[in-house]
Amino acid sequence: MGIRECTVEKLGVKKTMTSKELANRLRVHTVEMAHYSKESHVASALSICDIVAVLYHDVLRKDPMDAKWEERDRFILSKGHACSTVYAALAETGFFSVDELNTQCQDGSRLSGHITYKNVPGVELSTGSLGHGCCVAAGMALNAKLKGKKYRTFVLVGDGECDEGSVWEMALFAHQYKLGNLTVVVDHNKMQAMGFCKDIADHVNLADKWQAFGWEVIEVDGHDHGQLSMALNKRGTEKPVCVVAHTIKGKGVTFMENNLLWHYRDPQGEDYENALRELRAQ
């Protein structure tokens, strides 16, 4: 059972919606959510809209009517600050109402500014401190391997997040235990919180690093749905898979692209209108 069948059959989401259209909806939602919440990280969220859209549209086996379905694929957002994209994907695919999205971060809301599993159907893990989610994902993958379960585990990490030592402890572990059922997607937008990664903690070549840890590495254009779908649908045999997705932080809103300001700023006034206008024209 894929998400598409679920949503189409049970929830009546338009059958014709492509993953591209879904990605664009996610972009509009993330910009609106940042506008209403007045919180940071809109560019970090725009960076992953294509990855998340392809995951939910073409890859993850989920049932929105049964969020805890045992056989579901696990998906963890390790860069939890980009949660608006995932909340939006969950709402668009029927886990909860789209109307709730714009309550994010408001007083009393269940949708916090870093992803939370508390009371939010479809979210596997609360994150927000970088370098945790990927390790918990390895635990879920280990369970599947030890118990002979079919589900796959996906985790989305930031490239700045890959500064954290825990990421590489997990990389050693998943290779050692041959977790071919685990896929790490690195959102490689080349930026982190204070600037470009190469100016802060230069990874030199991230793909080489994951390869050197014994992982199967697939490099893709992180905004190309065909490439993403191929890579994400590829199940590892013995080696865990790392999809290094080359992305643009702020993708889709020209004035936010590769502009550090939009790690922090929330779109208001003209910026907000211009952003929506550009996205709606896509």
């Binding site: 970088l130 802060i200 903690a201």
Partner: peptide, 25 residues
Amino acid sequence: ADLGYGVMNNIIENYSEKFVNMGIC
């Protein structure tokens, strides 16, 4: 550890050799 955007400006601009961004580490 890769935080202090805007806050650190005075140090980054005027005491740059005293400022170390360790990365998210």
